[in-house]
């Protein structure tokens, strides 16, 4: 049984098909990169994974549960922008990762002290402890995204969704964010979906790369058909997953018995 399963999902807006017949199954701990041209429905797919929209047909389930109708604790998300709360300090933003799930939205007493300790550990982990009392607007783009990822991780989601998280960053910051994300992934073994425009980034970070495209194309009516997953690459080992296969399974190199 796969961890995240997408079965025969269709989505259309006002009768216009966006996605059709999407079938994906993902194991726990896999990092899935999603690439494709603009307007081919990859962000729509992410929004459906997030349960911000529900598919018009088909269903998406996590760990065999019921299909979600609204975003919740199971799914964490980081958007390209606006993922942190501008009116909360950096530390309060991390605290919100735990506090928002309570009835009043605020932790009190010993629960708050324990959460503060965890928040400070998370801040050290994402390298933001020196700006803990500043507001997000005074941080650089890369720091804001690190904060957004840390905040999402604090709520301990089962699936982390990233919608072009590094799209607004400069190339240098992007490289360091890749390293940060790889480390985090190695530590937590979290299932991640990441939409990106950058093929190289997709192959570098992902275990699998899903390509969204339109398999059918009507030149007289470009909107007539929706997109689907047209390629599903194995992107481990830099996109050459089998180059070490003989190291792992030496028996494969043995000559075939006569």
């Amino acid at each position: 049984m796969s961890f995240v399963s997408v079965r025969n999902v269709f989505q259309s807006y006002n009768g216009r098909p966006i996605l059709e017949r999407v079938n994906v199954s993902v194991d726990e701990g896999e990092f899935i990169s999603i690439v494709g041209a603009s307007g081919c429905g990859k962000s729509t797919f992410l929004r459906m994974l997030l349960a911000e929209e529900t598919p018009s047909r088909g269903e998406i389930t996590i760990d065999g549960g019921a299909p979600a109708v609204e975003p919740g604790l199971e799914r964490g998300v980081v958007f390209q922008r606006y993922s942190v709360f501008p009116h909360l300090s950096v530390r309060q933003n991390i605290l919100a990762g735990e506090g928002f799930a309570t009835l009043s939205g605020k932790l009190r007493g010993s629960a708050r002290r324990a959460a503060l300790e965890r928040a400070d550990r998370m801040l050290a982990r994402i390298g933001l402890n020196h700006v803990a009392d500043q507001y997000p607007a005074s941080l650089s783009g890369g720091m804001q995204q690190r904060l957004a990822i840390g905040q999402a991780m604090t709520a301990k989601p089962r699936v982390l969704l990233l919608d072009e998280p590094f799209g607004a960053l400069d190339p240098g910051t992007r490289i360091s964010m890749h390293a940060f994300l790889m480390e985090l992934k190695a530590e937590t073994n979290m299932t991640v979906f990441m939409v990106t425009h950058d093929l190289e980034e997709g192959f570098k970070l992902g275990d699998r790369v899903l390509v969204f495209d339109k398999p059918r194309w009507d030149p007289h009516d470009p909107g007539a058909y929706g997109a689907t997953v047209t390629y599903d690459f194995d992107a481990r080992d830099g996109g050459i997953p089998f180059q070490h296969i003989l190291d792992r399974y030496p028996s494969l190199s043995a000559p075939a018995p006569d």
């Binding site: 964490g76 993922s83 709360f85 928002f100 905040q151």
Partner: peptide, 18 residues
Amino acid sequence: IPHEQIVKAQTLGASSWV
């Protein structure tokens, strides 16, 4: 208020009241 923030709050488990 950017819709992303409202969605983000929901993924952190926030109720309508929060």
